[in-house]
Design a protein around this nucleic acid. Structure first.
Lengths: 191, 191
DNA sequence: ACTTTTGCCTAACACTTGTTAGGTAACATG
DNA sequence: CATGTTACCTAACAAGTGTTAGGCAAAAGT
């Protein structure tokens, strides 16, 4: 039951961190949200930093697992890219608040964890890069600046947490499909 | 000469806000960067909030001026979109730190200024939407979810400040061109 | 009935926060 | 030389920060 309470606290922290940022959220405010006093939070968590780590690596590890899986199973590059986008979008949409924290608040991790986080992010970036490389080798993607393509794709998926509304009519798999179409074929009509 | 000093302070604040966030940056740290005591900053600025407003609306107003200009002068939709992207990329690359603050720290504006900011951002979004609409009317862009296209385009331009390095080899106009190509024609080879 | 555990509390510590008041040395202007 | 201005300073304020120590009532276990 301690774990259950801890989870509730992490979820509430997520909400606050997404709204007001890690530093902008005080333990007293967070406690008030939970109907507790600040000191009582420490029965369940080690420190404020702990909360941030939990959230950042929670999302991070899911993303890593997803990209590794896509690159393990063989598909052609287009299928790989579509799967990767689909997984990414679904992870973000399943918890847009945690994803916001993942995107914006990781820099407030302590030095050790920040390095770990950057390594993780590079690993993910590398996973996406491999997909692009596969596509160029298979001659189905245009040759060009790989890194630029990767950054651009990642920007579109990461930005989703800024506007996604779980109560809106656009569902995650629809978003993933549209995004994949966009990334693959662009805005221009094929004539 | 007061103005000159003020500008230096705003520029330094920009750097700190971009690195550590608005709330994560203390006036004492900022003052130390300037070789001053915290209290001395108040000779040049009204408040800490003042600094954030200056930075956010500095970038915001430039973006608005740029999109309005593009929509005023007549081009076909593709030219309009390319110009808009070029302007946006150039504004961001001219001051990536201020752009980071613009993207991430606006939520810490006070309520009045935050509303003003959101209005400004909606205005910009509307400007981009008009370009997409023009393209659909001219039958050169694929019909589809306009809002989705706009958000996706904005995500790619806004993300540039996260990775752009003024000392790197990729120059703003090159970035703008690649990005416009990407947005227009996507990753897939035309066959 | 007695003990242990749970789940929270109050109080406090040491420190940092934005900001104001008032002063002072160096310099410019008359 | 006298005056005003510039450009900074020190000191202080009231409030808020994360976190620890120690306590206490209710519930659970025996």
């Amino acid at each position: 039951m301690v774990d259950r309470r801890r989870t509730q606290i992490v979820e509430m922290a997520c909400k606050r961190f997404a709204e007001r940022g890690f530093i902008g959220s005080s333990m007293r405010d967070l406690a008030a949200d939970m109907g507790l006093e600040a000191a009582s939070l420490y029965t369940y968590i080690k420190s404020k930093d702990d909360l941030l780590e939990d959230i950042c690596f929670g999302i991070g590890n899911k993303l890593i697992a997803a990209i590794d899986e896509v690159n393990d199973i063989y598909f052609n590059a287009e299928e790989k890219l579509r799967s990767a986008i689909k997984n990414h979008v679904e992870i973000i949409c399943a918890d847009p608040e945690a994803s916001k924290v993942f995107s914006h608040e990781w820099r407030h991790l302590n030095d050790a964890k920040k390095n770990e986080f950057i390594t993780l992010r590079n690993h993910y970036e590398q996973g996406v890069t491999e997909i692009i490389e596969t596509g160029i080798t298979e001659q189905i993607f245009v040759e060009g600046d790989k890194r630029f393509a990767v950054l651009t794709i990642l920007s579109t998926v990461n930005w989703i947490s800024e506007w996604y509304n779980p109560k809106g009519k656009m569902k995650p798999n629809e978003i993933a499909q549209k995004l994949a179409d966009f990334v693959l074929t662009g805005l221009k009509k094929q004539t």
